[in-house]
Structures are given as structure tokens and as C-alpha cells.
Design a protein around this nucleic acid. Structure first.
Length: 987
RNA sequence: GGGCUUGUAGCUCAGUUGGUCAGAGCGCACCGCUGAUAACGGUGAGGUCGGAGGUUCGAAUCCUCCCAGGCCCA
């Protein structure tokens, strides 16, 4: 308009351009648009540390007598840097702690580490070997050597605990990092022994043979991780085991017509195959697969039982003729062979055919030589069939005296040939040849390893606990009825694992761990009672488990008297022993399986620190770990607690899935698809990483890719900008102590009502650990309800109204509540950003620690009652947006402020509401609706009359850019609406 | 090989007990704003719900099998 350039207003403004800009209340805030998380999060951390946030929360809880809500951290292994799984796990735990804390509960969180165990010891031993120190250690006494290794292991664990603590703190987790629990702490070790003492008392601990990997060269047991596989030449033998009960054999193959006596002269036999002939003296059974098919066929002149599928293959090893079929006498299923018996080819005994599912048809004969003392599967089969765990091989790799005399004292490797020769001579060898295969070797000595049964300590799963049910039944009962599972399918999964788990082998033959406090006398009898364990526990509580290695049996048992211990074996009570005393005892050299230690944390941490009291029926509220812990920590914790107290240590179990790459594949260093936590933190900052965690469905596999963090970053920025916009419009606002009530007809009441609903939804989602739902509800609220609707609609009044107009102040009050409430709802997920915004809201400076969102609780519901008509208003708004968009597409208008929209008000509800609105607020509802659409004017019209009218010909307010029909030239020469004229103070 | 589990638009996910359940957000495309501006607003296109059978009047939703993943065992 030509008149604009000549108006006084324009000349009063700067230079030649007309402007009312400096008369507006434009947004202003110190809260930056760009978060700069990587740079700014450390400052938040420092501030929280300075105010001792964790301790302050505990103090606050004590002062306010908050209810305790106990949460228990499962200990990660003190080895290496934290990985994505840790990030996910620790952040989820932090969500739980923070959401419950903001609810007004007392939620202490003690982080822990699993410190003992093979991975560390192995790593330390490797370093000692490489540096040449290991050889020196081997010259020391057993106790001294172990102590030396243990010292190195402790240093190693401490180093990584420190490293991981720093990394976990970078994730902005709130925890008692000054007082973590470590499974190698004396008080933890002592408490572990206390639990063990209870298990011993309840008769659940026993000693039995079990095959382990054994290094003959070092006379020590080895773990899987200590094996290295190299090629080795061995003798592969196919051996006949002559059937004892020929009649039963004939019956199994449906050959009842044959005469057993006559048939027996043909020496009908089972054909087995093995690559370790030296284990044959320990053979106690032959295993078949119950569903496979077996044939009885002539091989090498004997009626031979062999898997149907392997018959031709094995027969061709020795017999070149192709007419195999003619030699077949009968067929049956493996199940039909069960219970048959055979004579050992050179030991004087008869053994049975048993069933085993692991029998395969890839190699051998389908009939598996089973030596329960010399193989893991053999052991299980032996157990299942009540066989002895027979192991005639001594620690030095020679046979003991239970084998035939021609083998006694012989080295097992030499025995391979001797046994083969004997089988040949006796006509029991069908075929043999040397072949090369991959075979496990000792990582240190590079010598071949064998499976050898050794005495181990076990916890019985099926034995009745004194005066009670057995652990398996107890565990199944409690996981069926008493424990909650998130997600629910965890129940089924864990119960399935409980149903099939074998007895728990508690012992390991290592140095870096908690010793099993058993004593042996010269005859091999052991002393292990509740009292002896408690006696040792006292020493351990003072000196740590090193005491076991530095103290003598007499010192360790000081204060213990076998004679008065009702549980002590008679041999230890006997007069003769009493005169010799504990000094004559030998200390056990076994340590506990590390799972036993971590499985005792409910007592060692939660009981001891007063956060739970299982014996008196106060278990922990929640354990939260990856779903692998259904078999791991959850299960071992359950078993130790049931064994010691009869009760489950937790009320609920929450599991998350595992991180996979963007294609859903497992992450591994060898595939090169791993992503480092350090890199994510450096690139995105903790709050964005946490925002990402909150966005995922953690129950299943979790895809991880940088692009997903980019998305999380974008989404974070939207929320941040909403907070920023709220803050920037509150710059000139101070909340009044007394809250006025919002007129229910006002838009502000509507948005606060929406906030109340969202707040309730978010808190309910937090309650059920549905962080994803909370995340998306918060996100949608910021974007949709606030950014697109409320903030867009109120911009005009905030900028253009008189600063202290009632309408503007009312909106500012609503915005204050929104900002305050949002900060608190966001705080569990975005601790840094929420606190940054919260502090900005209160305008406290960097050093000021008087305000901290983490010390608040969620805002109570705001006392408003929005007019029910707002639902219709918002629907009409959406419909009108379509009308507007169509007009824009038809080029009726470009800028919405050039438009008057005729809004369809079919039932007159809007018009009716307009009256209530005007009465309550003193403002025009048409103008309010125009703001909701971002247009200049609105009219309510009847059905079918919705349209857009262009207002380009009407004068435009130079201040608010509206064409609301009141624009005219004012006393200062500017063209203004009535409202703007009043705001500027011109007539 | 077994137990549990996952597979819905390019991406992340909603879809209670089978019947407007084919949805949301991001991304993308187009438009607007330029007084939230390394921002903001509006509109739109996109999927035979891993595959194949089956039950049913009707299935993403129940059953069977298969394919591709994950955890734990063997």
C-alpha cells in the first residue's frame, strides 16, 4: 500500500522502513537452540557431583520418610570397555531409578561388578606367560603361586572397574558410584559364604565325579577358553561289542524264528566307533538314538548292529563287495535296542544299550561308545541311566589299578596302540586307520587335553531341602505364581530352563575366586558343615578370601570345635582325630563358580545394605537384565535364595533383548559391524543416546545403526525447541505464588487439560516400564499439541498484546506450568536437557545449585477443567485446515493472514461456545479461532458453506500483519488494529 | 537338533479377546512463513501386514509348515 511509506510510524522507526518491531514482545532466552551436549553434559555432571546428587536424594528420602523401592543392579564383568549392551542396560536401569524417584520413592542404586573368574585370570596368565614371569611362579608353593596370580587379577579388575565407572557416569546414570559392590570385597565374599553355609546346612551340597578338560602336562583342569585347537593324528577304530543276550537281540529285529544258541556262535555284535581307544576301558554303555533306524547285517562275518544309514559306508571300509543288501538280516528302531546288553571286549563286565538324543549319523556307526568319566555327553547319559562315573585314568595320564593288568600304569597315549593291537588279536576290531582331526590342546603347554572325571562340588536341584521341597520344585512354583515377568513370556522361558537344568557344579579348579572352604583329612574325608563355613566366613570378612591362601587350616578353623558340631562327620569327631587337630587337614584348592558369587548378591548387597530382607519376606522389587539372564543371574540368584531362605529374591524380572546390526545380524568384531559406545557418546551425547533408548522396543532384538541416532537427534531437537520456545516467551514472566483458576473456556485451560492427560499417560507408561510409550506421548505432545496448535495460536498474543494484558499473562502462566511439568516428565530420560531447561526457567546461573529438576517430583495434576466444547473446536480446526489448504492450492490466497475462513458450524455448537467463551474471557471466540488457524478472520457458517475469502484488499496491520477489519490509520500515522493501537498506546 | 522369541509403509514402531486395524512419527515430495529462522506451520504419496497352506461368513490377529534373524541350551 502506497500510504505505508508516507506514514509517520515508518519515519519514527529506524531509517526509511516502517517498523513496530521494537514494540513487540519477541521471544528471548539464554537457552540455546543447539544443545552442544558433548560439551555441556560434563558441566551438568560436575554440578550434580558438586551437590552430591545421589546422597542428597537419599537425605531427601530420609527427611520426607519416602517409601523404599528396592532395585538391584546385576554385576557386569570387570573386563574391557562398556559396549552397546551395557549402554542399553544401564540406561534402562537409570530410567527405572529416576522414574520411581520422581514419583516420590526412595530408590537407592548400588552399582556392582563381577570381579572373579576365568576371563580375568586367563588374561592375566597370558600376560604373565608372555612376560616370562609365569615360569618363576611355577617354582612357588601352591598357595604362594595362587596369591601372586590373585594379586595381579585384583589389579586388573580394579583397573576396569575404574574405566567402566567413568563410562557409565558418562551415560548420566545416577548411582552410588562411591560405594559400589564388588564380588571380591571381603564383606561380599563373607556374605557369599554365609549363603553357602545355609545351602550346606540344608543338605543341598554334595561331592561327585564329573568329567572336565584336563591337562596332563600341568595336572590341572582347564576351561573351554583355555583350549586351543590343533590338528592331531589319532587312531580311528570300529569295534565289535559282542551281544550278551542274543534272544533279546533276535526279538528286537523280529527274528524270533532263529535259534539263539546257534546264532550266538556267529558272535552277533554292536559296532561302535571311537577316535580315543584309550577311553575304551572306561566304557560303560552304548548309546543309540531312539528314533533312528538300525539294521542287523553281516559284516566281516558277524551279524552286526549298525545304523541303517551308515551301514554301506562302514561296510565299504573293509569289504569291497557291493552286494550289501543281501547281508541284511533285519531292521528296527533304536528304541527297540534299549536294554540289550553286551560284553566289554577286554574288561570283564556286561553293559547296557541306552538312549541318547545327541547320537548323529554323520560319523561312526550310530552306536556311540559311552564312557561317563570321559565325556560331557557321556556323563549326562551316565547320569540319566544310573551308571558309574568311572574314570580309571589318574591325574598324570596313566591308568589306575582297576583296568586289566596289561594296561595298569600305562600312559594313555601309548595305550591307544596297545588297545588296538589287543582288539586286533581278539578279532574285535572291524577296521582301524590313522586320521587327522582338530583336537583341543592346553593353551600353555600346547599338549593334547583329555576329558577326565574329577571330584567336584554340586548343589542338588532335585534333593528335598531340609523339611521342604527341592529347589527345582520351589523355583517352578514361585516363577509360576509369585514373580512378575516383563515381558510375560519370560515366565515360560525361565521355567523351561528350570525344568531342564542339571545339578549345579559349583567348583572350579582356579586361583582367582572365592575358595570353597572345605577341608580334607588324609583319608580323603571332607569337613564342610554350616559351622565350618561360618567360621571361615568370619576370617574372610576381616581379611578377604586371601585368608584362605595365607592362613593355615588351624587358623582358619580357630573357634571351631568338631566335637560339638552336630553336622561334623564322625571321623572328625573321633578321639583319634581330635588329638591330631585341624593342622593335619588339607585345604580344598577349588574355588566357586563365579555365578554362585553373583547369585548371592541379594544377600551380599541388598540384605547387607538394608535394602531388602529376604529372610523376613522383603524381596527386591525388580531385577533388570538381558534375556540371557533367565538362565544366568536370575536363575542362580533364585536358586541360592531358595536354597538359603526358601524364597525368591525378586518380585519382578524385566528383560531386554540384544543389540544387532541394521540388518538384524549379531554384532561381532570379526564381522566388523560393531559400534562403540565411546563413538556414540562423542558424536551424539548421552541425552540423545538415552532418547534413542527410550524410543526402542527393548523386548526383542534391538537394531543399532548410526542412522537411528541421527533420527533420535532430530527428534530430540524438536523437543528441545519446544522447550526453548516456551522459555523464550517466559522471559518477562514471574510466576505468582497464588495460582489463579483458568477459565474453562480458555484455550489455556484446554492445553493444560491436555497436559494433565499426557502427564497421566506418561507416568502410567513409566510405571509399567513402557518407556517407548512415554517417549512417543511426550514427543507428540511437544510437536502436535504444543508446537503445531497451542504455541502457533498464542504467538500473536504473546508478541503483540500489551505485555501485561490479562490474555497474555494467562497464556504465560499456562506456559510456565507446561514448561515446569515437561521438564519433570522428561527428566528421567533426558537428565541433562531437562535440568538445563528447568534451570533456565528459574533463571539460575551456572554455579547456582539451588534448583535441580532431579530433586523434584512429578507435578501434580493442574487444577483446570477445560470446556468440553474444545474437542469440537479442535475437530473444526482440522476441517478448516483442509479448506484453507484447498484455497491455497487454488491460489485464492498465499499467506493465511490474507484469509478469512468460513468455518462450518453445522449444529451451532461453535456459536454457542462463542458466547460462553466471551463471557468467561471477555474476548472474541472468532478471533481465537482465527489464531488457531493462523488466519486474520473467521466466521461460523451453516452446513456446506465452508470457504475462504481473500482479504488482500483490506488494510493490513503494520504491527501484527493481521487484516481483522479494525485496521485503520492511527494518531502516529501507522496502520494498526484496535488491539495493536492499544498496545502501542496510540489512538 | 531343542526351548523361548522376532519379522506390519524406505526407517522406528502402534495395532486388547479375529469383524471401519491397515495406523502414527521420521524420512521423502509439494506448499506456506521469514518476529521459534542451522527454526516453525500445512498438504500429500508410500504397505498383497516374512512366505505357503488351513480354520472361519470374515485373519496382520487362531492353527500347521517353511524362510530369515536373536537369546539360551545341546
Amino acid at each position: 500500500m502506497s500510504s505505508e511509506s508516507s506514514s509517520p510510524a515508518s519515519t519514527q522507526a529506524q531509517g526509511d522502513k516502517p517498523s513496530y518491531k521494537q514494540t513487540l514482545n519477541l521471544p528471548k532466552t539464554a537457552f540455546p537452540m543447539r544443545a552442544n551436549l558433548v560439551q555441556n553434559e560434563p558441566a551438568s555432571m560436575k554440578r550434580w557431583d558438586g551437590m552430591r546428587l545421589y546422597d542428597t536424594l537419599r537425605q531427601l528420602s530420609a527427611d520426607e520418610r519416602r517409601d523404599l523401592w528396592s532395585f538391584h543392579d546385576g554385576p557386569p564383568y570387570a573386563n574391557g570397555s562398556i559396549h552397546l549392551g551395557h549402554l542399553l542396560n544401564k540406561v534402562l536401569k537409570d530410567f527405572v531409578v529416576r522414574t520411581r524417584t520422581m514419583q516420590g520413592l526412595d530408590v537407592p542404586y548400588v552399582p556392582g561388578w563381577d570381579c572373579h573368574g576365568l576371563p580375568i585370570e586367563h588374561k592375566v596368565m597370558t600376560e604373565l606367560v608372555e612376560s616370562g614371569k609365569a615360569a618363576k611362579l611355577d617354582t612357588l608353593s601352591d598357595d604362594d603361586r595362587r596369591m601372586a596370580v590373585r594379586r595381579e587379577c585384583r589389579k586388573y579388575a580394579e583397573k576396569f572397574i575404574k574405566l567402566q565407572t567413568g563410562q557409565m557416569r558418562q551415560l548420566l546414570t545416577v548411582a552410588d558410584y562411591d560405594h559400589p559392590y564388588l564380588t571380591m570385597q571381603p564383606e561380599y565374599e563373607a556374605a557369599t559364604l554365609e549363603v553357602f553355609a545355609n545351602l550346606v546346612e540344608h543338605g543341598l551340597v554334595y561331592r561327585a565325579l564329573k568329567p572336565v578338560h584336563w591337562s596332563i602336562a600341568n595336572q590341572t583342569a582347564l576351561a573351554e577358553a583355555e583350549l586351543e585347537y590343533y590338528d592331531r593324528q589319532d587312531l580311528s577304530v570300529y569295534v565289535w561289542f559282542e551281544v550278551e543276550d542274543v534272544a533279546a537281540l533276535l526279538k528286537a529285529f523280529g527274528l524270533a524264528g532263529k535259534d539263539p544258541k546257534e546264532f550266538a556262535d556267529l558272535k552277533p555284535s554292536l559296532m561302535i566307533w571311537t577316535t580315543t581307544p584309550w577311553t575304551l576301558p572306561a566304557n560303560l554303555a552304548v548309546a543309540v538314538h531312539p528314533r533312528y533306524e538300525y539294521v542287523l547285517a553281516m559284516m566281516g562275518g558277524r551279524p552286526t548292529v549298525i545304523a541303517a544309514e551308515l551301514y554301506a559306508k562302514v561296510k565299504s571300509l573293509r569289504e569291497k563287495s557291493s552286494a550289501h543288501g543281501a547281508a541284511e538280516l533285519g531292521r528296527c528302531k533304536g528304541a527297540d535296542l534299549l536294554g540289550l546288553t553286551y560284553r566289554h571286549p577286554f574288561c570283564n563286565r556286561v553293559s547296557p544299550v541306552v538312549s541318547a538324543e545327541y547320537v548323529t549319523l554323520e560319523d561312526g556307526t550310530g552306536l556311540v561308545h559311552t564312557a561317563p568319566g570321559h565325556g560331557a555327553e557321556d556323563f549326562q547319559t551316565g547320569h540319566a541311566n544310573g551308571l558309574d562315573i568311572y574314570c580309571p585314568v589318574r591325574a598324570d595320564g596313566t591308568y589306575d589299578d582297576t583296568v586289566p593288568d596289561w594296561l595298569r600304569g600305562m600312559d594313555i597315549w601309548k595305550a591307544n596302540e596297545v588297545i588296538a593291537k589287543r582288539l586286533e588279536d581278539d578279532g574285535a576290531m572291524y577296521f582301524s586307520h590313522t586320521f587327522t582331526h582338530s583336537y583341543p590342546h592346553d593353551w600353555r603347554g600346547k599338549t593334547p587335553v583329555i576329558f577326565r572325571a574329577t571330584e567336584q562340588w554340586f548343589a542338588a536341584v532335585d534333593k528335598p531341602r531340609a523339611g521342604d521341597l527341592d529347589l527345582r520344585t520351589l523355583a517352578l512354583d514361585q516363577t509360576r505364581d509369585d514373580v512378575k515377568f516383563y515381558p510375560e513370556w519370560g515366565r515360560n522361558r525361565m521355567r523351561g530352563m528350570l525344568e531342564s537344568r542339571p545339578d549345579w557344579c559349583l567348583s572350579r579348579q582356579r586361583a582367582w575366586g572365592l575358595p570353597i572352604p572345605a577341608f580334607f583329612d588324609a583319608d580323603g574325608n571332607y569337613l564342610l558343615t554350616r559351622r565350618t563355613v561360618m567360621c571361615v566366613a568370619e576370617k574372610v570378612r576381616v581379611k578377604g578370601s586371601d585368608a584362605w591362601f595365607t592362613m593355615s587350616p588351624a587358623q582358619l578353623l580357630e573357634g571351631y570345635d568338631a566335637a560339638s558340631d552336630p553336622d561334623a562327620p564322625d571321623s572328625f569327631k573321633a578321639q583319634a582325630w581330635q588329638s591330631v587337630g585341624p593342622e593335619s587337614l588339607r585345604k580344598s584348592s577349588d574355588i566357586f563358580d563365579v555365578w554362585f558369587e553373583s547369585g548371592c548378591s541379594w544377600h551380599a548387597v541388598m540384605d547387607q545394605r538394608g535394602q531388602a530382607d529376604l529372610a523376613n519376606g522383603k524381596p527386591v522389587e525388580l531385577y533388570l537384565e538381558g534375556s540371557d539372564q533367565h538362565r544366568g543371574w536370575f536363575q542362580v540368584s533364585l536358586l541360592t535364595a531358595l536354597g538359603a531362605t526358601g524364597r525368591a529374591p525378586f518380585k519382578a524380572l524385566l528383560t531386554h533383548g540384544f543389540t544387532v546390526d541394521k540388518d538384524g545380524k549379531k554384532m561381532s568384531k570379526s564381522l566388523g559391524n560393531t559400534i562403540e559406545v565411546e563413538d556414540l557418546l562423542k558424536k551424539y551425547g548421552a541425552d540423545v543416546c538415552r532418547w534413542w533408548v527410550a524410543s526402542i522396543n527393548f523386548e526383542g532384538d534391538i537394531k543399532v545403526d548410526y542412522s537411528l541416532f541421527d533420527v533420535a537427534g532430530e527428534s530430540y531437537r524438536k523437543v528441545r525447541n519446544t522447550l526453548r520456545f516456551l522459555l523464550s516467551n517466559l522471559d518477562d514472566y514471574t510466576p505468582l505464588d497464588q495460582r489463579e483458576t483458568m477459565p474453562g473456556a480458555s484455550l489455556d485451560a484446554w492445553v493444560l487439560g491436555e497436559y494433565n492427560r499426557v502427564s497421566q499417560e506418561v507416568r502410567a507408561a513409566y510405571d509399567r516400564y513402557d518407556f517407548r510409550a512415554a517417549h512417543s506421548t511426550l514427543y507428540d505432545f511437544c510437536n502436535d499439541t504444543l508446537s503445531a496448535v497451542y504455541l502457533a495460536a498464542t504467538k500473536d498474543r504473546l508478541y503483540c498484546d500489551r505485555p501485561d494484558s490479562m490474555r497474555r499473562r494467562r497464556t504465560q502462566r499456562a506456559m510456565w506450568e507446561l514448561c515446569d511439568g515437561l521438564c519433570r516428565l522428561l527428566a528421567p530420560i533426558l537428565p541433562h536437557t531437562a535440568d538445563e531447561a528447568y534451570r533456565s526457567l528459574w533463571k539460575v546461573d551456572a554455579k547456582d545449585t539451588s534448583r535441580c529438576v532431579q530433586l523434584t517430583t512429578y507435578l501434580d495434576a493442574i487444577d483446570v477443567s477445560a470446556d468440553a466444547a474444545w474437542t469440537k473446536v479442535m475437530a473444526a480446526r482440522e476441517a478448516s485446515q483442509q479448506t484453507l489448504e484447498a484455497a491455497r492450492a487454488a491460489q485464492v490466497i498465499e499467506n493465511p493472514l490474507d484469509a478469512e475462513v468460513h468455518v462450518q458450524d453445522a449444529d451451532g455448537a461453535l456459536a454457542a461456545f462463542a458466547t460462553r467463551f466471551a463471557d468467561a474471557t471477555g474476548d472474541s471466540f472468532e478471533a481465537e479461532f482465527a489464531d488457531l488457524l493462523g488466519v486474520s478472520r473467521v466466521k461460523f457458517v451453516g452446513p456446506g458453506a465452508a470457504r475462504v475469502v481473500a482479504l488482500a484488499d483490506e488494510p493490513r496491520c503494520e504491527r501484527s500483519w493481521k487484516r481483522d477489519g479494525t485496521v485503520k490509520q492511527r494518531s502516529d500515522g501507522g496502520w494498526l488494529t484496535d488491539r495493536d493501537a492499544q498496545a502501542v498506546g496510540v489512538a
